[in-house]
């Protein structure tokens, strides 16, 4: 929009670079620290480059017992939660924006209030409920729990995006003879894609990062998820700082990859061309 004004463009780019530098700095420092040999972490003059470089921290982190089990569990749980929550939230948001029915506003307010409950408070009641449902120590229990945690937000976000799509577009497509399914796939989905992506990244991060529910609800060690592995770097007798930081770097990697992959679709989905069908 401001493409013609050159000084504004320079200022904008400078600002963006500055922002990136500040926001990236902690992440850069994390990777930098992870690559340093243990002896280099306590230096009063910080070392900005990790030379001599050492991959020992990463090797130690991956060699921890059960790493592979936890990784598999995390991938399963996160994958199912993201898919499930996006589908379920999309259906619910469609109902909430395309229909008028009794209980609609109540439902919306209800799921907003759910988000206000302080986290620690729900742990014990939820544990008791899972116990009664015989879902303790199962990945399904964990999946259902995380889905319920992310649904309020994903429904609200998708509702916001569905509101932005004019019903006329769908109606026009229907008039053109498209089936309802085609309308959803060809018209609605591309337009709501940015919202779906925002919601799925959020779901991914919640399911991928949770420690306490995974720790409390799973009993057999082989069913824990990766955050439990991350916790294993701190014990009562000391914290393996290098290992923890290297572990965190590895841990964050899939989220970045996941988003950068779907982020391309975000760009495709939102070009004005899609609106014009």
């Amino acid at each position: 929009m401001v493409r013609r004004v050159r000084p504004a463009r320079v200022a904008l780019n400078t600002g963006a670079v500055l922002f990136c530098a500040v926001w990236m700095f902690p992440v850069y420092w994390m990777v930098n620290t992870a690559l340093k040999p243990t002896g280099d972490t306590l230096s009063p003059t910080p070392k900005f480059l990790p030379f001599p470089m050492s991959l020992a921290n990463f090797a130690d982190a991956v060699r921890k017992p059960h790493f592979a089990d936890y990784l598999v569990n995390s991938v399963i749980v996160t994958g199912v939660v993201v898919t499930l929550s996006v589908v379920v939230a999309f259906l619910a948001a469609t109902a909430l924006t395309r229909f008028r029915f009794f209980g609609r506003r109540g439902f919306l307010i209800g799921i907003m209030v759910i988000q206000m409950i302080p986290g620690p408070a729900l742990l014990i009641p939820l544990f008791l409920s899972m116990k009664s449902l015989n879902m303790l120590d199962t990945l399904i229990g964990l999946i259902v729990t995380y889905s319920a945690f992310v649904l309020p937000l994903t429904i609200w976000v998708m509702r916001g995006f569905l509101h932005g799509v004019p019903v006329e577009l769908e109606e026009a497509a229907m008039v053109d003879g498209a089936s309802r399914f085609t309308v959803i796939r060809k018209v609605l989905l591309p337009l709501v894609m940015p919202g779906i992506i925002a919601a799925s990244v959020f779901s991914f991060i919640v399911a991928w990062n949770d420690y306490i529910y995974a720790y409390v609800m799973m009993k057999d060690q082989s069913r824990y998820t990766l955050p439990v592995w991350l916790a294993s770097f701190s014990t009562n007798i000391g914290t393996d700082y290098g290992g923890l930081i290297a572990g965190s770097t590895l841990f964050a990697l899939p989220i970045v990859v996941f988003f950068m992959l779907i982020q391309r679709r975000l760009v495709v989905g939102m070009t004005a061309g899609a609106v014009k069908g």
Binding site: K131, L136, Y211, Y215, V216, D220, Q221, A231, S234
Partner: peptide
């Protein structure tokens, strides 16, 4: 089974509250 320190009291609490504890 090796347990982690973080939130260990909650972990033990909930384990002892189950019908098939360690």
């Amino acid at each position: 089974q090796i347990q982690e320190w973080d939130d260990i009291n909650t972990k033990i609490t909930t384990a002892l509250a189950q019908n098939d504890p360690p």
